[in-house]
Write a protein that binds this DNA or RNA. Structure first.
Lengths: 330, 330
DNA sequence: TTGTATGCGTTATCAT
DNA sequence: ATGATAACGCATACAA
């Protein structure tokens, strides 16, 4: 690899001059610029980011920490982040946390050790020292921390909407799936749904689940219909689980949505391709990723941000696992 | 951030000594080691990886380049890579290429600028200078380059199997979906299927597709049944497309697998949750990721590798979008 | 307009 | 067993 010295020598100038043309800082004569530029291209020189980073004490890397990209919701987030970062010449060090605080700490440490300029994290524990003591900007994505930069959708409201729509469409033996205890958004959705159900005096059952994994989802689904065979409406904690519930319902010979309605959460790309296609509470994942990246960049550039927390809309996405209603309502 | 000097001062020793305990290199008295260690923990010191990387000319980062993690096949790959890397204290700079050579070059450049110790890439152009001129180990994942380190599944064989099984199950008006031209594995599968179909004298139609995107998949599916309404067997280029085909077939009132059989490719997590569940040619994605990471690490450690290219088995994964046969065959 | 010299935080060489 | 110091590749302050 050629270094800046090689370029300088090749062009017959000093390293400082090369640095100047590289960074477009300070004066440099047109002729010498030309010389330097040809030297650069002849030697296929590209600056060593590591040396740069050491000197400036900041890299052009950001850290992205997501729970598990194997869950189709997160790749959407990730692409949003990446595309936006790309447009700003920032690259990504990526890690999956598995919602595990130790892994999170490990990755955060890696991030700072590598001089990242900022981090985007989906964490359930934004209030630990891990994040508090970070002296680089952090944006929480798909998670909230009061008064700190974050981009998220209103899960509680989503849960409420799901319950409302489910009731409006006639289900009276509703089962709500309670997602993993330690995952905040899962609990928000659950809470929102329960609030409305209680409010309306609808009886409902709860199935507790402890992961969002594809393999386990089938287990919860089976459990659901074993324990509550007369369920006529399921509010699932996300689209993966909803897909498993749909699969199991159909396997049991139930008609969807006639016998049982199902509402998911997220609107992962696949949901519309199921048969019947899945009614769900949509989160604009890609846009959330982009928004988080945009916010982080503004934070990095030290712009004065008026509102740090961006709440994205959740939208009821009506498809075929719910029945039609004549009259719409809130 | 505390530096090694701070630690040295705090412990009353020289930086060299601190470095020695840090790296467990050279002699250091037990007592001074203790002093240094307490200094380290009191100051919450962690070594600056950037400085390390500059000196050693190699970081503890690897570059991972995948086409698009939005396609559920790739997150599996990515997790396999990450989990294996994690176990070896290596972290990942990640990028999506969108099968686009320019983006690839950009990312590869970023990788070398950041002193990555190796790269894992899914590329259709392993024989460009972009990769040839790299003087760090590269492992091609889900792609091949003759005689160069790679981990891949035998797509051609997969295509053959799909065709065989389809024929054995009685389909005679088969439509083969030809994936994007520039994506090698897609063409391999296609070619494999076509080889067998020709060989057996089975008539078949072809639907050309130009992406694996969820949104466009529906379009190909519609096109398929419009152009070839009497199709009784579809060999799809991957599970995303197969899912769309299944969806469309059902929408048209066709019975699956009675009227039309469908075979996908990949076995993404979701495939087993469809109804009917999707018969597919499975690639062991997670294991492929792990294997690629393992191979890369051995390359980095300069171990003499006897065989650079690891071919993983594809397996016919029989589920419900194909009919049963009494007698199994090759 | 250009060049020299210093320091970013480490590791490793060479003394001691 | 420990310390002083050069070097990794770059950007900047200061000189010229």
């Amino acid at each position: 690899m050629a270094t800046i010295r090689d370029v300088a020598k090749h062009a017959g100038v000093s390293v400082a001059t090369v640095s100047r043309v590289l960074n477009e800082t300070g004066y440099v004569h047109e002729d010498t610029r030309k010389k330097v530029e040809t030297a650069i291209s002849e030697l296929h020189y590209t600056p060593n980011e590591v040396a740069r980073s050491l000197y400036k004490r900041k890299s052009r890397l950001i850290g992205l920490l997501l729970p598990d990209i194997t869950n189709p919701f997160f790749p959407e987030l990730a692409r949003g982040v990446e595309d936006q970062m790309q447009e700003n010449d920032l690259r990504i060090i990526f890690g999956n946390s598995d919602e595990n605080l130790k892994k999170e700490k490990d990755y955060i440490q890696t991030f700072v050790q590598n001089n990242v300029v900022g981090v985007i994290a989906s964490t359930n524990d934004p209030d630990t020292d891990t994040y508090r003591k970070l002296n680089i900007p952090v944006v929480f994505l798909d998670r909230t921390a009061d008064n700190r930069p974050s981009v998220y959708a209103d899960g509680r409201e989503g849960g409420r909407i799901a319950a409302h729509e489910m009731i409006a469409r006639g289900s009276r033996q509703i089962t709500v799936m309670q997602g993993p205890k330690h995952i905040r958004p899962a609990q928000d959705r659950y809470q929102g749904a329960v609030d409305v159900l209680r409010d309306q005096g609808i009886t409902f059952n709860v199935i507790k689940t402890s992961s969002f994994s594809f393999t386990e989802a089938g287990t919860w689904a089976k459990e659901l219909f074993e324990q509550h065979p007369d369920t006529d409406g399921v509010i699932a904690s996300n689209d993966i689980v909803a897909t498993a519930v749909l699969h199991e319902a159909l396997r049991l010979g139930k008609k969807v949505p006639e016998d049982v309605q199902i509402i998911g959460f997220d609107d992962i790309p696949l949901s519309s391709l199921l048969t019947p296609s899945l009614t769900t509470i949509r989160q604009p994942a890609y846009d959330m990723g982009r928004a988080a990246a945009g916010l982080l960049i503004r934070l990095i550039d030290n712009e004065n941000i008026d509102h740090n927390t961006i709440q994205m809309p959740v939208t009821f996405t009506e498809r075929e696992t719910t029945r039609k209603v004549e009259q719409q309502h809130g």
